[in-house]
Amino acid sequence: MAGQVSLVQIRIMSIDELLEEFEDLLDWEEQCDFLIDLGFELPKFSADLKNEENIVKGCQSLVWLVAEPEVSDGVTVVCIRADSDSMIVRGLIAVLLAAYSEKTPQQILDLDIEALFQRMGLNQHLSSTRRNGLHGMVRRIRSIAASNCT
C-alpha cells in the first residue's frame, strides 16, 4: 500500500545500539543533532494516517501514533508507528520505537521507560511541553499494551 511503513524500515536500531551511540556523544549539542538525524531517518506517515483518531493528546507538536498487536511465531507483539510535524519529536519517536516496538504487551508494561529518559538526560534538556508530549505517547503505548495483555 502506498505510504505503508514496513516493519523492516522501523527496525533500524535496537535500543542498546541506540544508547551506545547516544552516550558516546560529547554533549547535548551532539545528542540533539543525533536525535534530529534519527528524526530524518524515521519513515513518514501517509496523509490518511494523520487523522484525528491517531493524534496523541498533550503534545504541543502534532504527533500521530498507531500501535497494533500482531501475531508473530505464535507470540503477540505490539507494532508501533508514529510521526510528528517536529523533527526533534520525530527523533524522540525513534527512541520510543527502539525501546518499545516488537515487544510483547507484558514486556512493554514491564519496561522502565523513565529510567531510559533519565539515562539519556531528556528530562533535563526537553521543555516541559515536550516532556508532557513524550509521556502522552508513552501512556498511549502502555494503554494499548494493557488492552492486549493476556
Binding site: C32, S61, M87
Partner: peptide, 8 residues
C-alpha cells in the same frame, strides 16, 4: 521549521 524545534 517547527516553532518548538526552532526555539530549541
Amino acid at each position: 521549521l517547527h516553532p518548538e524545534d526552532l526555539a530549541a
